[in-house]
Design a protein around this nucleic acid. Structure first.
Lengths: 343, 343
DNA sequence: TTGAAAGCGGTACCAA
DNA sequence: TTGGTACCGCTTTCAA
């Protein structure tokens, strides 16, 4: 079991070729400083010995790793899209990107911050907006961070996001324009600022007299959407349209409607939020608010690089959303479209 | 902009407290070697100065990083599940896990291998089975690797997987037992060994006289499943049941059936493979072969640690699969259930 | 129980 | 154009 042969080091190469380690280093990093001949000889030796520089040593010396972490709260397809965008940008600029997830646990978030403090990565793209974020309670100096998707509570971080409130207004108004009057909202958990903003948009669009009973708090899962819709359906005056805080809950709502023997969109219109992959694949395909997820990731990485290069002040980039109409919304057919809620 | 203050180092702490850096180091790594008093004093100083050890330096010295990479071919929810399992195991044993993806590009795979060679990580869990894997053509010594999900062509790597062939046999037989005779197969791309194995299972279950015309090659995407099903439906003697090589293609098949005005499972039964999340959520919910994805990840990480500790020889762990019956399969109602194909 | 010092494997400055 | 060497920040003998 003497298989544990050490990897080839720069010294091995230098000794083998009878040159200094400085020369070997230069062959890789500043080849123009070497003579044709030496360069060729060294490169050949490197190849022959299978030498690969120890990045740990290099990074230690250079004080940078060219690595960025993307931290997501959960491993949903939604966040994956963001990651994809980040990777695309990183590839163009020579960064490596790695993904970690926190399970919405601030302690785990902290672990990644520490990794950066420990120089394993240069910076972080944080795709979470939980109020419980480690950021908020943080005393120590923060690592270089870009917030993606949503501003982080209480800290003016460089951010790439969409305007959740405005998008929610648009979604609600779309339903209103279809003639719906009793429009319900299934929101995400109030612990998520994003969910709060979407709720605010809904309220804003519904006007001052909106019916609080038509607002139900879910937790972004399909099951919660299903449950919430069940509640809504049980009312004496069920809504004719529902604006769900994300696609998953919208799907849950569709399910509940179906299992109640009603049809979407004939009996009830439903609009989701995010335009996740599943939105277009579901049966029926979901009308939803399109969020440019990959683009958010892409821009986030670009912004992070600027931050790392100290070449830009903090910025807040807001990307546009749009409503993607598919098959779960239709004009309101109900006669009884009284505007006044029964409270 | 003199904000660029260097992070606190071990020397800073030592100077501040008037002790040696060895003492500071010991306070963190071997506290039992220090006197009560010194230890307390040093720890207080560390806390006060917000010192965090530079892991790069530590890893360089220790020759290990306690980091593992999970490399996936694509960022699908399917691979995410594997990642989740890996993380769970890693958390118990103090490893950090980071995810990278290759887009099925061997060159990108190579990049991650290099990262390990460069000591940024100790080992790799490779969740890909492409024949084009960088592994196959590799001359250099491989980094410590565990293959998850599928054996890698031509290299006897430690592996955690399922028996794709046996599972495919079971899936096909399940359809056969429901009375179906004309059972088609939509396979994954033949470049994927996994797809090949599943196809082989299908052929094995159908027996020697299977109809090659009932085998269509897809590429694991929904669209390809839809297209393939379209082809099948266009035959003079369309199948009464279809075994799709994964859930996505199964969904595509369901779509095609629906849009042809037929019903699933009344007119045509469809079974998928993998039991991805979407399988249970789709309408109708998919009958499929359950693959213990997270468990595969979990066991892979455990195995990798053994490999890294040189405490185990190469191993091939095979986990069981089972058929999860949902709503896309039903007994064959067709009278014309002739066993002999028309070839 | 503590300190001094030798590396770990690179990069880059200063000389030659 | 090349070599010598200080240094990045830490761990761990070896001595005191």
């Amino acid at each position: 079991m003497t298989d544990d042969a050490r990897p080839t080091t720069i010294t091995d190469v230098a000794v083998e070729l009878g040159v200094s380690i400085a020369t070997v280093s230069r062959a890789l990093t500043r080849p123009e400083l070497l003579s044709q001949e030496t360069r060729a000889r060294v490169l050949e030796g490197i190849e022959r010995l299978g030498y690969q520089p120890n990045l740990l040593a290099r990074d230690l010396r250079l004080r940078e790793s060219k690595v960025a972490f993307v931290i997501v709260p959960s491993l949903s397809p939604f966040f994956l899209e963001v990651f994809r965008g980040v990777e695309k940008a990183a590839r163009k600029t020579g960064y490596s990107v790695l993904m970690g997830h926190t399970d919405r646990d601030p302690a785990r978030e902290q672990v990644f911050f520490d990794q950066v403090a420990a120089r394993r990565a240069d910076g972080i793209i944080l795709v979470t907006s939980s109020r419980a974020s480690a950021i908020v309670s943080r005393k120590q100096r923060l690592p270089p961070i870009v917030a993606a998707l949503e501003q982080i509570d209480g800290r003016p971080l460089p951010t790439v996001r969409v305007d959740h409130t405005a998008a929610a207004v648009a979604a609600t108004e779309y339903l209103l324009e279809l003639g719906h009057r009793r429009v319900a909202h299934i929101s995400g958990p109030m612990i998520s600022p994003m969910a709060v903003h979407r709720l605010e948009g809904y309220q804003q669009a519904m006007g001052p007299g909106f019916d609080a009973g038509l607002c139900i708090e879910g937790d972004f899962t399909i099951r919660s959407g299903e449950l919430a819709m069940g509640l809504l359906l049980g009312r004496q005056d069920p809504p004719t349209a529902v604006f769900a805080g994300n696609d998953e809950m919208a799907i849950g709502a569709v399910r509940a409607v179906k299992s109640a023997g009603l049809r979407v969109p004939e009996d009830i219109s439903i609009i989701g939020f995010d335009d996740q992959r599943i939105a277009g694949l579901y049966d029926p395909p979901l009308t939803t608010v399109h969020v440019p997820t990959a683009e958010i990731g892409y821009r986030s990485m670009l912004l992070l690089e600027r931050v790392l290069a100290h070449s830009a002040a903090d910025r807040d980039i807001v990307l546009p959303t749009k409503i993607t109409v598919r098959a779960t919304t239709a004009p309101c057919k109900t006669r009884l479209d009284r505007a006044a809620p029964s409270t």
